[in-house]
Design a binder for these strands. Structure first.
Lengths: 286, 286
DNA sequence: CAAATAATCCCGTTAATTGAGACTATCGAA
DNA sequence: TTCGATAGTCTCAATTAACGGGATTATTTG
């Protein structure tokens, strides 16, 4: 793994919840985006002023910078809301992500009726993000959705990635999250944690049903490099209709599919060929 | 329509392609996002340096600001790619947009087999953006997709919005786009253009098949206010399987559905009730 | 037409960005 | 482990832009 990625990953993991670093002006502008939440999607400039403790001129300048970039757009009643650029950028990611491009045809070949739903989750240093979710069983209830993020410790798609982290990252993660790790039953000490992770690596998948009690989620790791996890594949099936044997088959299926994706992804690497066309996968470790 | 919106809409429309206004520092940082295109999704800092003509220190500062905001993320081989925050923000929009929330159940009631696909497009001042696309006919070929934008003059979803623009906006649009308007056959003079738009308003829908020769797209306007268009609904059907009578029915269906959405959207307005809960629709005119 | 609100403009002061290059950290290979 | 290469950070003085406060313009509502 290149130096750049490791540095970034280490920082992302260790910096967790430290916050409050010195901010550039651009950083302050970008912080305005944090205000726009699901509960509070529309803000007037006056509201932004009082929230930021800024003057009118400053608040308008911030909003204007974001508006000019298309990240905000004027809404009804003199409010601003998240802008069109976000949807456009998301489309760009969907269309240019090598992982999605590679995985799609391979997954579409795997039409087993056992698969009630499937999702691809991607690793972003301190969190795991669902980047694609497909539902086949109309009765299944899913908590995953593109753009939803999960902590590295929560849920099968996250945990299988956690298990394959390089040693120093895993160590960092343990020291800043030992309480949660212990609570989740992954080990009360660093040694225990390391052992349980090694065990998970040995079997090569993770079965979970904690985030959603009605389904099994079976996750297998996806590598963009011989030794670097970048994502995970998850097959989902309702518990009530799943026999032990079917669960076994589901596990085999997800591991096989993830392996095929990994193979293609690794060969997609810049080793040979035009690196501007076949650029290294944007899947990342940081 | 509030003053804020008009000002923004006028500017967006008249400013088209003028570009090159003085940029704030935050604006310069946000410009970096423009580099990340579908053809060129991964950039090293060195590449950004030479593209921007900035020094190493500056380029790193820009990238760091965007990285801290989650808009960029480190990719493989020391590149940066668009970050997880974009997917998260897109999810937030999907979950908080009143138009989507209102339209979804109403559209799901409308299960006519005539509808091969449908899409909702939203007006953003100088462009029209597809915000939701559903395909029912598996053989249909669609150019629309969430996040894809179209100029105001191109395609049925755009044109029906164009037709309902307030007079001064339409006037602005004509004076900066008279050549394209004439080429598109919408009128060689302002008078002709105004007449053809009035005619379209009178019939209340727009049928087009220019962007995709294999299908009809039938679009009807959606209003967030008695007189303000904010979006359009489009029903799509393959031409080869569509009789004249079916086209008529499709038109009636899309107009009916769009009207129902408009009604609900208008009543959703802040007129009564808690405006923090039932905030005015973020659909916008600018 | 007048009042109210949204958004921009102006300008002296202040605080942050900038560029150049030295410096540190990590990786890959021997 | 050492070395070389590359990624990314840091320091500092000079420049440049952000900031605040208040006046000004633009647009809607009554």
């Amino acid at each position: 793994m290149p130096a750049a990625l490791m540095a970034a990953a280490d920082k992302a993991i260790s910096m967790e919840k430290s916050g409050e670093k010195k901010q550039s002006s651009a950083g302050k502008v970008l912080n305005v985006l944090d205000l726009f939440t699901e509960e509070n999607p529309a803000w007037t400039v006056e509201m932004i002023m009082s929230e930021l403790g800024a003057t009118r001129a400053t608040a308008y300048r911030y909003v204007k910078a974001l508006y000019d970039a298309g990240l905000l757009a004027p809404g009804a009643a003199s409010t601003y809301v998240l802008g069109p650029r976000i949807m456009q950028l998301d489309r760009q990611i969907r269309r240019s992500d090598p992982l999605l491009k590679i995985a799609q045809p391979l997954l579409d070949e795997d039409q087993s009726p056992l698969i009630g739903a499937r999702s691809i989750s991607s690793f972003y240093g301190d969190q795991v993000l669902a980047i694609q979710v497909d539902r086949f069983d109309p009765e299944i209830f899913l908590t995953m959705e593109r753009g939803r993020s999960f902590p590295l410790i929560y849920g099968a798609p996250s945990r299988i990635i956690l298990a394959y982290l390089p040693p120093y990252q895993m160590r960092n993660f343990y020291s800043s999250n030992s309480a949660e790790i212990s609570k989740a039953g992954l080990g009360k000490t660093w040694e225990e944690f390391r052992t349980s992770m090694r065990k998970m690596r040995r079997i090569g998948y993770c079965v979970g049903n904690e985030s959603n009690r009605t389904v099994y989620g079976v996750s297998a790791p996806i590598f963009h490099d011989k030794s670097s996890v970048s994502a995970s594949l998850t097959y989902v099936r309702r518990i009530e209709i799943t026999s032990d044997q079917e669960l076994e088959e589901l596990i085999k299926a997800v591991v096989r599919a993830a392996n095929r994706i990994s193979e293609k992804l690794i060969n997609y690497s810049p080793a040979d060929g035009d690196s501007s066309l076949v650029f290294p996968t944007p899947r990342l470790a940081g």
